[in-house]
Design a protein around this nucleic acid. Structure first.
Length: 290
DNA sequence: GAGTTTGAAACT
DNA sequence: CAGTTTCAAACTC
C-alpha cells in the first residue's frame, strides 16, 4: 500500500473528489499514493447560470472565439496560466510556504529555486506539508483547484470560479486575479468600480497598449475585424460555441428537474442573449450602415 | 532596493 | 458570516 493522506480520525482517510486527479491541482498525489475516490457530486458548484442570472451588466454569458482570434482555448490558456504561475519562485517569509498565501503551495508544488525563508513546503517536511494540505482542504475542499474555470463540469471556461473582490484597482492591475489571468470579471465577482469588462474604455486602452495580451479576452466578436460583411462574424466557431452554451442550459434544466417547457424557455433565453450580443457587436462596429 | 498599496487568505 | 489581521505579490519612487 502506498502513502495515504494523514487523517485525524483513526481508520478513516481523507477522501478527495475525483477532480483532484486532474492537473494542475495535484497537491497530494504521488505515484505511490493510495486514495479513496468518490465521484464528484453535482452539488459541488455546477455553476452554469441561466441567462437572466447573469446580472452584472458587463457580463457576457459565454465566450465565443472568432476565427481571427488566437486559437488558444480557454482550457489551454488556463493551464498555461497556472503552469507559468507555478514556475514563479515565491518569496514567503512567515508562512513557511504552508499556507495558500504561497503560490507554490497553492499550486500544489513543492518549493524549488525559491527565495523563501524557513520553507516547509518540501520533501524534508512531508508530514508538516500533508498536515497543512489537510487543514486547507478541511477549510475549503476546493482550495487546490484551479481558480480559472477549465470548462469541466461545474465550471465555466475562462472564468474565475470564485470571482475577485477588488476595491481600488479597478480590476486593471495584476492585484486582480481576473486581470492577472487575462480574463474579464464576471457575475461571480464582487469587485467595486470594475473596469475589467469588454466595453470599458479604460480596459480597451490598456489592451491596445499591449499590456494585456489576448488569450482569454475574446468574447462575442466585434465585427470590425470582418468589415467586408457584417455577418462574417458568424463563423463556425461562433456557432459551435453558441451551441455549447445552449447545451449547457439544457443540462442545467435537466439537473434542476425543470419541465420541458421551462427548459425550452431557458434555452431560448440563452439563445436570445447570444443573438443580442452578436447583433450588438455588428451594430457597434458601424459596418451595417456605414 | 525600500517603502507602499493591494486583495486573497486566515483568523476572530 | 462579517469584520479584522496577516501575508506576499504588485507596484511606485
Amino acid at each position: 500500500m502506498g502513502n495515504v493522506l494523514p487523517s485525524s480520525v483513526p481508520g478513516l482517510y481523507p477522501i478527495l473528489p475525483q477532480s483532484y486527479l486532474a492537473p494542475p491541482s495535484l497537491p497530494l498525489i504521488r505515484p505511490t499514493t493510495t486514495l479513496l475516490v468518490q465521484p464528484t457530486s453535482l452539488s459541488s458548484g455546477y455553476n452554469f447560470l441561466s441567462g437572466p442570472c447573469f446580472s452584472q451588466f458587463h457580463q457576457t454569458p459565454c465566450p465565443v472565439y472568432p476565427d481571427s482570434q488566437p486559437k488558444m482555448s480557454p482550457v489551454r490558456f488556463s493551464a498555461a496560466y497556472w503552469d507559468a504561475k507555478s514556475r514563479k519562485p515565491c518569496s514567503c517569509t512567515k508562512s513557511q510556504c504552508l499556507k495558500l498565501y504561497c503560490d507554490c503551495f497553492a499550486n500544489g508544488d513543492v518549493c524549488s529555486n525559491c527565495k523563501c525563508i524557513n520553507c516547509y513546503n518540501n520533501n524534508e517536511h512531508e508530514y508538516e506539508r500533508y498536515q497543512a494540505i489537510k487543514i486547507c482542504l478541511d477549510r475549503n475542499p476546493e482550495a487546490f483547484r484551479p481558480k480559472i474555470g477549465s470548462g469541466k463540469r461545474g465550471e465555466i471556461k475562462g472564468r474565475h470560479n470564485k470571482g475577485c473582490n477588488c476595491k481600488r484597482s479597478g480590476c486593471l492591475k495584476n492585484y486582480c486575479e481576473c486581470y492577472e489571468a487575462k480574463i474579464m470579471c464576471s457575475s461571480m465577482c464582487k469587485c467595486v468600480s470594475c473596469r475589467n469588462y469588454d466595453e470599458s474604455p479604460l480596459r480597451q486602452t490598456v489592451v491596445s497598449a499591449g499590456s494585456m495580451d489576448l488569450p482569454g479576452l475574446a468574447f462575442y466578436p466585434t465585427a470590425k475585424s470582418h468589415d467586408e460583411c457584417p455577418l462574417a462574424c458568424l463563423t463556425l466557431r461562433v456557432v459551435e460555441t453558441t451551441c455549447v452554451c445552449l447545451l449547457a442550459q439544457a443540462e442545467e434544466a435537466e439537473k434542476e428537474g425543470y419541465t420541458e417547457a421551462q427548459a425550452e424557455k431557458m434555452i431560448l433565453e440563452e439563445f436570445g442573449q447570444g443573438l443580442t450580443q452578436i447583433v450588438q457587436s455588428i451594430f457597434k462596429s458601424g459596418s451595417l450602415y456605414s
